[in-house]
Design a protein around this nucleic acid. Structure first.
Lengths: 224, 224
DNA sequence: CTTTTTTGATAGTAATACTATTACATTTGT
DNA sequence: ACAAATGTAATAGTATTACTATCAAAAAAG
C-alpha cells in the first residue's frame, strides 16, 4: 500500500484551485507549509502573507494557486478525505464479514493518524490535527450550497456513504444509517478535540480513544 | 414558565462582555439585531460596522459592549445554553422515572426551537439557527484554552453534565456517558445543518427529526 | 533557441478591525 | 439644586487583511 500511494495521485476537484498545487515545487511548498502554519497559529490567523514570508515567496504567487484561504482549506480537506477513502477501500477489500469490515472502516475514520511517509510534501498527522480543528469551517459558510453544487464536498459525502452501505448490509432494518455514520465521522473529530481541550465532557483520553467509544456504540446500536 | 422567564435574567459570564448589553436599550438592540444580521449574512461576513449601520449607531459604540465579534458570538452562545439549561431544569423537575427524564432532556437539546415570546429582545428561533451554523466557531480557535479557563464555556459544559448525570442513573455501567452526551448535543446541531444543506448524508428531513434519531439511539445504547 | 508559462517584485485599493480623543447626556451624592 | 462622576456617542485615524494589476525575470517546453 505504501508503494502504491507513492504512484497514485490523490484527485481533488479542479474547481477548488486556480492552478493545481501538485504540479509544481512552489505548489507543493504552499501545501506543506500551509499545514505547518495553520497548525501553529490556526486557520483564523493564517494569511497568505505569512505563508509567503515563510516559503520565501510573494503573496501574489500564492494567489495564483488558490483564490483565498478558504479554498485552500477546502483543498486540504478534500485531499484528506480522498486519502481516507483510498485507505478505506484497501482496508475493507476482501473482508467477507460485514461486521469486521465496518470495524476496520470505523477505525480508519475515527483513529488518531500518523504520518504516512509515502507522500512527501504532506504530513498526514499534521493534516489530521488541522481537520480536527478546522474541517467544519469549510462548510459552515454562507456559500455552502453553491460550493456543494460545485462538488467541493463530494469525496467527504462518498466516504460517509461507503460506511452507510456497510451498515445497511449488517442491519437492513436500521432506519438511521446515514445519520449514524455522519454523526460518527463528525463526532470522532469532535471527541478528539474535546480530549485535548474539554476533558470534562468526554470519556476519551490517553487510554480510551474515540475509536473505542464508537466501536462500542455501533455494537450496541446495530442488530447483528 | 413563560411568566417566570420574563422576571428572570439569563446570567452570562461577565468576562465575555465589556458592558452588560442587558442594561441598556442600545445593548438590547445590539443583541437583537446581531441575530438578524448574522442570520442574513453569516458570522464570517458580519461586522460591527454593518451592525452599527442597521441600528443607527456608531461602530465604536458597539465596541463599548463587546471587544470583538467573536466575544459577541460567545455571548450569544452562552445566553443560548443558559436558556436551554433553564428550560432543562424545569422540564425535568419532578419526573421520577429517569428514562422519562432523559427523553424530555434530549428533546430539549435536539429539537427545533420556536421563539419564546417571554424574552422581548431575543428571537430564540433565530438564535437557534445561528447556534446550529456558528456555535462550533466559538471554541474552534487558538484561544480556546484560555477562554475555557476564564469560564466562557461553563454553561455549555454544565448542560452536558446534567444530561450525563441522568444517563448514569439509568445505566451506571455504561462507560461512555460523557462522550455519548457531548456527541449527541453537538451531533444534533450537525444533523439540523445536514438536513438543510447535505441531505444525502442524513436521514433527517421534514418528517424525521434529529430528536427521533437520538431518542432511538439512546434507547438502543443504554441498558434499562 | 525561442516561445510560452511560471514566478517574483512593486504598487495600489477597499474593507476590516480596531483605538484615541473629545463632546454630550444622564445619574448621583451632598 | 448643582457639581462631580459616570455613561454614551461621534469623529477621525491606524494597522492589517484580502485582494488586484502590472511588468520584468526566470524556467520550462516545444
Amino acid at each position: 500500500m505504501d508503494q502504491l500511494l507513492a504512484n497514485i495521485k490523490i484527485q481533488v476537484n479542479d474547481k477548488i484551485y486556480v492552478k493545481d498545487p501538485e504540479t509544481s515545487a512552489l505548489g507543493r511548498k504552499i501545501i506543506g507549509n500551509s499545514l505547518i502554519i495553520m497548525d501553529e497559529i490556526g486557520f483564523d490567523n493564517f494569511t497568505f502573507k505569512k505563508l509567503g514570508e515563510r516559503i520565501g515567496s510573494n503573496e501574489s504567487s500564492i494567489y495564483r494557486y488558490f483564490e483565498n484561504k478558504h479554498k485552500l482549506l477546502v483543498y486540504l480537506s478534500s485531499w484528506y478525505w480522498s486519502w481516507i477513502e483510498y485507505k478505506l477501500v484497501f482496508a475493507t477489500a476482501n473482508i467477507p464479514d460485514p461486521l469486521d469490515k465496518l470495524s476496520r472502516a470505523l477505525e480508519l475514520v475515527t483513529e488518531n493518524i500518523e504520518d504516512d511517509l509515502s507522500t512527501e510534501h504532506i504530513d498526514e498527522s499534521l493534516l489530521n490535527k488541522i481537520i480536527i480543528a478546522e474541517f467544519t469551517k469549510t462548510f459552515l459558510t454562507k456559500e455552502v450550497d453553491e460550493e456543494n453544487k460545485e462538488g467541493f464536498f463530494l469525496i467527504y459525502k462518498r466516504v460517509i456513504n461507503r460506511l452507510v452501505d456497510i451498515v445497511k448490509v449488517i442491519d437492513p432494518e436500521y432506519p438511521y444509517a446515514k445519520s449514524l455514520i455522519s454523526s460518527i465521522v463528525e463526532g470522532a473529530l469532535h471527541q478528539h478535540y474535546l480530549k485535548d481541550h474539554f476533558k470534562t465532557i468526554t470519556d476519551c483520553n490517553d487510554k480510551v480513544s474515540p475509536t473505542d467509544y464508537y466501536l462500542d456504540l455501533v455494537k450496541r446500536v446495530l442488530k447483528h
